[in-house]
Amino acid sequence: MGSFDLILLLKTAPGLSLALLLAAMGGLTSERSGIINIALEGKMLISCCVTALMSVAFGPWIGLLGGIGAAVVLAMLHAVLTQMYRVDHIVSGMAINIIAFGASNFLDKKFTDINRTGEIPQLPFEFYYVAAFALPLVLWLYLRRTKGGLRLWAVGNDPDKARQMGVDPVKVRYLALLATGVFCGLAGAWLVTNAGRFVDGMTAGRGFIALAALILGGWRPIPAALACIAFGLLDSIQLQLQGSKLLGAGIPSQFWNSLPYLATLIALAGLLGRNRAPAGLGKP
């Protein structure tokens, strides 16, 4: 500590970007299919909690599967509500966040084994690194070169016309949200693996930062991934500056924490170029 360490910066940044990357890709499949997703946060959080509980009880792999499963359950709830019950995307997303926050608190308080509070069993970090950094590339190829990708793109742009062409928008959206659940589940599992234990509300707004990165990246996988990495870098700079005597040390950490949100606000104001949201975003 005490001086600015570039090596340390480059070492910590990818780890800080990881959860953002995974969650942002989850947001991508959802929003490309036309479903506004403000519930990335909740889906990640429930996965954190369930991964922690099940890893302790059954080992890291079952823990990961449990976390993904829990996020998928919430994602499917989102799908059922928006597609079958025609509930507004925002309202259902918000309700899911509230439920996830409450449920993770409830499960953690009631089912954590007090006799085994040590570190939870972990998967190798490399697993998450490979998954998170390969995912944007895979999604990029998927969107450009496959039948499923074309249909996802089409449904997000205009569900009615896609239906006329024999594509079932509801099916496409269920699958898209399934992917959202899996990716957010992975993101949550990584967070709790990295932190070593579950803490109430431990996602700390990362789901919203991931959404911000998605918007900054114009709803495209590679630019969104780059935005996630930039936010991770920002986070690691801020951690370094805390307690260092270098230039900028007088700036409170809250300022750095606000930067991703501020950047997104500026992007939304159109000061960073044209708004490229999927045309059918939010349509029933």
């Binding site: 070169r145 496959t146 039948k147 499923g148 249909r151 793109w153 089409a154 016309k161 896609a162 594509v167």
Partner: peptide, 20 residues
């Protein structure tokens, strides 16, 4: 769908295969 290319519009719903 105006946002898709002409070719994508042509194929949509009747794609030649899983991989395009």
């Amino acid at each position: 769908i105006p946002e898709l290319t002409c070719l994508q519009n042509l194929m949509l719903g009747a794609e030649p295969g899983l991989w395009i």
